[in-house]
């Protein structure tokens, strides 16, 4: 009891004293994660779409992402020092390799799960391949795709704490220095913001997912139309 309250006191004192540093590191953490996530999306969503059209490549590409996934994260970070040297580039690259699988896999599965008769009907109505992708396949695959993005986001934010092990920044710095000096309040000062960011990001994505679900969208459209109808009659 005494120890717990003293940890709490120590934690509050630490935060009160070093909050600018914690904020700065949180911001850095966010930046690293955001860049890694953006990179993942920019590469893996198109790649996932591409392999739905080149079915033969799919097992290799997904297999490769799978391999990255299974390499222990610390080992991967250490290995990448050989290529990128020390610093955030290295960390971002490693995070990207980690987050590839869920995004790639879910894009691929999501698009493949679009019933083929819908694609055929869309084609029969005169959509181009790109319109089919944009108006039929991606919207129908969106829940699955977003689920993958959510997993990737949480992973990235969690794993980004390891970046400081190889000279990068982020909240990992606090955690590692806390571990080194056996000061739990510093570990907490790093771990709690990281957890909060991860949860918040996840919830934001979940909200987006719900907001744009067909049902809610249809409801909003109906409401808007109702309003317009009232306006017109006035």
């Amino acid at each position: 009891m005494i120890q717990q309250s003293s940890l709490l006191v120590l934690f509050i004192k630490y935060v009160a004293r070093y909050y600018p540093r914690i904020l700065r590191l949180t911001f850095q953490h966010l930046t690293i994660s955001a860049i890694a996530l953006a990179l993942t999306l920019v590469v893996c969503v198109p790649l996932g779409i591409y392999i739905t059209r080149k079915e033969k490549l799919a097992p290799y590409v997904i297999g490769l992402a799978n391999v990255f996934q299974t390499i222990p994260s610390l080992a991967l970070l250490g290995f990448l020092i050989l290529i990128f040297g020390i610093g955030n580039d290295n960390a971002i690259c490693a995070l990207f390799m980690y987050a590839m699988l869920p995004v790639l896999q879910n894009t691929y599965t999501g698009i493949r799960s679009v019933p083929s008769h819908l694609v055929q009907a869309a084609k029969g109505m005169g959509m181009t391949d790109f319109q089919i992708l944009l108006k039929v396949q991606l919207p129908i695959a969106r829940p699955v795709l977003l689920a993958g993005v959510r997993v990737a986001t949480v992973w990235i934010i969690g794993t980004a704490t390891l970046a400081s092990a190889i000279g990068g920044g982020g909240l990992g710095k606090l955690i590692f220095s806390g571990l080194a000096s056996i000061r739990y309040e510093i570990i907490l000062a790093g771990a709690i913001p990281a957890t909060i960011i991860a949860l918040l990001a996840d919830q934001c994505l979940k909200f987006l997912q719900d907001y744009y679900s067909p049902r809610n969208r249809a409801k909003r459209m109906a409401k808007k139309a109702e309003k317009l109808g009232v306006d017109l009659s006035e």
Partner: peptide, 21 residues
Amino acid sequence: VRLRRGIGYVVQEIALMPHMS
């Protein structure tokens, strides 16, 4: 593509887009 836009098409599976009103 333009040909298809000029021809109506109804299929057995109905194939309404589930995400569209």
